[in-house]
């Protein structure tokens, strides 16, 4: 009985570590994706100043091992970068609508 309980604890601990490691990797990947998209907005000349603090906060959360927050913040950064890229694409032609008439 004791042996069974000990085995269960070891197995549970193993899965917990595995889950934790996966989340850390996911958070790092999520931040990398946000950074890549952010770089694209810079190249497009349409960087928003709201992205940089989100990425910085996400990195801080990763360092503090708060992986869920890191993923949440980097996802927000990615969403904003994607919107900035849509804006950049749209403004390639839309700027002509702003000319004085």
């Amino acid at each position: 009985m004791k042996l069974k309980a000990l085995s269960l604890i070891i197995i549970f601990g193993f899965f917990c570590t595995l889950a934790n490691a996966t989340t850390a990797t996911d958070a790092a990947k999520s931040i990398q994706l946000a950074e890549d998209l952010w770089d694209k907005t810079k190249s497009a000349g349409h960087e928003w100043n709201t992205i940089k603090p989100l990425v910085a906060q996400a990195k801080q959360a990763l360092e503090s091992k708060d992986f869920a927050t890191a993923i949440e913040l980097s996802n927000k950064a990615s969403q904003q970068a994607e919107l900035a890229l849509i804006q950049a694409e749209h403004e390639k032609t839309n700027w002509l609508n702003n000319l004085p008439k």
């Binding site: 349409h46 100043n49 904003q80 749209h90 403004e91 839309n94 700027w95 702003n98 000319l99 004085p100």
Partner: peptide
């Protein structure tokens, strides 16, 4: 004339 930033404003706006 291009809109930029999260608020989507151009200088011209």
């Amino acid at each position: 004339y291009s809109k930029r930033g999260q608020l989507n404003f151009s200088c011209a706006n």
